[in-house]
Each structure stands twice: as structure tokens, then as C-alpha cells.
Amino acid sequence: MSDPILRLSGVFTDIAQYHILQGVDFEVPRGQVTMLLGRNGVGKTTTLRTIMGHWRARAGQIVLDGQDIAGLPTPAISRMGVGYVPENMGIFSDLTIEENMILAASSGPIDRARLDWLFSVFPPLQTFWKGQAGNLSGGQKQMLSIARAMVEERRLYLIDEPTKGLAPAIVSTMAGALRQLKDQGASILLVEQNFSVARALGDSAVVMDDGRVVWAGAMAELANDASLQERLMGLSMEAGH
């Protein structure tokens, strides 16, 4: 693929004595949504954390727009325009929604038009704007977590399981927000266990197993091939799991 926004080449990451990533190779096309898929525990979250600099790669290259960011500290990667939504949401519970959002807008005051757009896709954020984030429901906290990453236009968004454990109505809200972000031309690397969401949003897919990439291609190809899904992940997207 031409001019990917992100490329991982031979990335190895160790956590204590465990070799988690074992030579990960894939590319994220610019202006597309790339789904990072696979069973639990195969290294998807570690891949995002390594890209973001939370874990240090032992070997390999992580190239963002032509610059190798492997080894850079997390704040430097963030300043390069990478937004990250961790699986544990990473919000500040003791602060208000407003304060959480202000902290996330690193380049200055929040753009009013972008804030109005976020309110339109996540109405509870406007409703509870002055309220403490810790008082939000689980789904509302996830909305805030994603909105914090989206408060400014980023070069690349890394999003880890945004619909995990959420009620179907909230999943629909999340998917709609991510679709709007996609329609704006955003480049997104998305870990997602809900395959109906993955099928609806993904342009391309990368499937991991045991710390390695075992398949990469068009999301539509994977979505339309039940035997391939079963072979790669032991799951059928047709079943909606």
C-alpha cells in the first residue's frame, strides 16, 4: 500500500520475562480504519501500548509519517498528533468532564465547532459538562475517554476496545461517532472484539495470534469468508460475536 501513515517492522516487545510481541509487521493506510483483531491475549493491547511508547520495543521499527518513533517517550509521541484511547479509559475521575476535555486539548483552547460536534455525537457530555467524571455511568465514561482523544484533530487515533462491556444502545452510539470520525478522513487503528462493529467500520484488517501477525488484508475479505474467520480467530462474524 502506498504512503501508510504508520508502519511496524519486526517489532519485538518484552514484559518482564515474557516475550509478548514477536516480530510484528503491518501498515496502517492513511485516511482509513484498520482493525486489529485476534483472540484475547495475543498481543493487540501490547501493540498499541508499544506504538504509544508505554512499553519499549526491544527491536524493530515503528515509523509514523516517515519518522521512527520507537524509543520516543509517550508525551513526545502524543505531541506528534497521536491520540490514544486505552482499554481502561484513562479519564480523571476527580475532575469534571470540562476539565478532562481541557486537559486533552494540548494545543490550546477547545475549538468550539469541534466541541459542538462532540456534543452532537455524545449528548451526555454536554448534559453533565460541569459534573465530576467519576459520577458518570460506564458507557458515559467511555464516551468521555473517546471524546478526549477526538477533541483535537489527530494525525492518528489508537483506540483499544471502545465497545467492550457496553449496552447495545451505547455500542451504536460509539460506532456512529467512530464512523463520523472516519468520514472526516481520520487514520484509525482500532482494536475491537465486536465483529459487527469491526465489519461496519473497518477498511482493512490485521489479525494477530501469539504475538505475531498471521493475516492482513481487506476487512471485506475477512468479513465475507466465514472459514477464514474460523481459521484465524475461532469466531464467526456472521454469528455477531
Score class of each variant (00 low, 15 high):
residue 2 S to C: 12
residue 39 R to Y: 05
residue 39 R to M: 09
residue 205 A to W: 08
residue 140 Q to A: 01
residue 70 A to Y: 10
residue 158 L to P: 09
residue 51 I to H: 13
residue 142 Q to N: 01
residue 55 W to Y: 15
residue 149 A to Q: 12
residue 88 N to M: 08
residue 72 L to H: 03
residue 240 G to M: 13
residue 198 A to M: 10
residue 6 L to T: 00
residue 31 G to V: 09
residue 226 A to P: 13
residue 204 S to P: 04
residue 49 R to I: 00
residue 174 M to E: 02
residue 182 K to E: 05
residue 31 G to F: 06
residue 129 W to E: 14
residue 13 T to G: 03
residue 75 P to Y: 13
residue 69 I to Y: 11
residue 206 V to R: 08
residue 191 V to T: 05
residue 108 G to N: 13
residue 239 A to C: 05
residue 11 V to H: 03
residue 221 E to Y: 14
residue 85 V to Y: 02
residue 21 L to H: 06
residue 43 G to P: 15
residue 62 I to V: 14
residue 110 I to F: 06
residue 241 H to L: 12
residue 31 G to L: 09
residue 182 K to I: 02
residue 205 A to Q: 07
residue 46 T to W: 04
residue 100 N to K: 04
residue 56 R to Y: 10
residue 232 L to T: 10
residue 160 D to W: 11
residue 35 M to D: 13
residue 84 Y to K: 08
residue 64 L to I: 00
residue 105 A to W: 07
residue 173 T to F: 08
residue 33 V to G: 11
residue 173 T to P: 11
residue 137 S to F: 08
residue 14 D to C: 11
residue 48 L to K: 01
residue 12 F to T: 01
residue 42 V to D: 13
residue 154 R to F: 02
residue 187 S to Q: 05
residue 64 L to K: 03
residue 15 I to V: 15
residue 67 Q to Y: 03
residue 102 I to S: 00
residue 237 M to I: 10
residue 230 E to I: 07
residue 163 T to D: 10
residue 240 G to Q: 10
residue 150 M to N: 01
residue 23 G to Q: 02
residue 28 V to A: 03
residue 196 S to E: 06
residue 19 H to W: 00
residue 234 G to T: 01
residue 96 T to A: 15
residue 148 R to A: 07
residue 224 N to K: 03
residue 158 L to H: 13
residue 114 R to I: 04
residue 233 M to H: 04
residue 60 G to S: 05
residue 218 A to G: 14
residue 116 D to Q: 13
residue 219 M to S: 15
residue 202 G to F: 05
residue 236 S to C: 02
residue 212 R to G: 05
residue 98 E to L: 03
residue 41 G to C: 07
residue 217 G to P: 06
residue 193 Q to A: 02
residue 2 S to D: 14
residue 136 L to Q: 08
residue 19 H to L: 00
residue 131 G to P: 12
residue 133 A to F: 09
residue 208 M to R: 00
residue 219 M to W: 04
residue 25 D to E: 02
residue 122 F to I: 06
residue 93 S to P: 13
residue 199 R to N: 15
residue 221 E to S: 10
residue 115 L to S: 10
residue 113 A to E: 11
residue 159 I to K: 05
residue 79 R to T: 00
residue 152 E to L: 02
